[in-house]
Design a protein around this nucleic acid. Structure first.
Length: 258
DNA sequence: GGGCGGGCGGGAG
DNA sequence: ACTCCCGCCCGCC
């Protein structure tokens, strides 16, 4: 049998073995609340990494609601944290989580791949669901990407809110479309400009000087002077016009040299 | 421009 | 194992 939960301390006590902090760490998650950044969160973690996140707003600011959601998902209790995972506060402030350790053990390989792809989207930028599908090598699994993101156990930190519909509109979100929209605006994504472009059927932007094509929210696209900016309906259309995909936002698979 | 069917992974029988 | 069925979608009619 595997000792888990509150029974562990009791069992160890019966054996007259004092429970070591590191052993508890391996078995029982710690939880804490962090009020930083546009979306304060409750977080659980073990020594394996962060495994569960909810915005405080989504649980009405109540720790007990968060802990109940945690218990439902993992069938395990959590105890109050005695430390803060390294990098957590900074990640919430900056929107960059690349140094954080996550425990995604309960997920399928596909789900992990999808979350890893989402993790690579910088703050202030967005990518469509079909982009994620292509990044994980399953270009037709677009809707499955949405399903996988919907199961993201660590939202905010793995920024699934940066994955939008093909037209740049926010799309669905576990905490509601409005919350997703607000998160994007808090990161300075110009949601309204993207929507205005979409109305003109422009989903990609290029620079007539560099002849590079980007997603509209790409940090390089944002630097294109208006007089040099041109729009495309598809990446294929841009490529046909002699543009090459931006290496930062990868609006289309670049040919693999061999 | 809204509706509709195709597409896909995962979970419940 | 196989079959449904559902879901943060997409592009066409």
């Amino acid at each position: 049998m595997t000792p888990t939960g509150p029974g562990l301390e009791r069992d160890l006590a019966a054996l007259r073995i004092p429970p070591s902090a590191s052993l508890l760490d391996r078995v029982v998650s710690q939880w804490l609340r962090v009020d930083e950044g546009p979306a304060p969160v409750f977080v659980t973690f073990t020594e394996r990494g962060i495994d569960f996140v909810r915005t405080t707003a989504s649980v009405g600011g109540r720790a007990e609601v968060f802990l109940e959601a945690y218990r439902r998902r993992f069938d395990r209790p959590a105890r109050p944290a005695t430390r803060t995972p390294p990098g957590l506060v900074g990640a919430l402030r900056t929107g960059r989580s690349s140094t954080l350790r996550f425990d995604l053990g309960g997920l399928t390989p596909f789900e992990r791949d999808v979350l890893t792809a989402a993790l690579g989207i910088p703050p202030g930028e967005t990518r469509p669901y079909h982009w994620v599908a292509r990044e994980v090598g399953r270009p037709a699994a677009v809707r499955a990407v949405g399903t996988a993101l919907g199961h993201n156990p660590v939202p905010i930190l793995i920024p699934c809110h940066r994955v939008t519909r093909a037209d740049g509109s926010p799309g669905g979100y576990a905490f509601g479309t409005e919350a997703k929209d607000a998160l994007l605006r808090a990161e300075d994504v110009d949601v309204d400009a993207v929507a205005a472009m979409a109305r003109r059927r422009v989903f990609y932007v290029g620079s007539v000087t560099t002849r590079i094509v980007c997603f509209p929210t790409c940090r390089h696209a944002r630097r294109i002077a208006d007089r040099n900016r041109t729009g495309f309906r598809s990446a294929a259309e841009a490529v046909a016009a002699g543009y090459r995909p931006c290496r930062h936002c990868r609006p289309e698979a670049t040919a693999v040299g061999g």
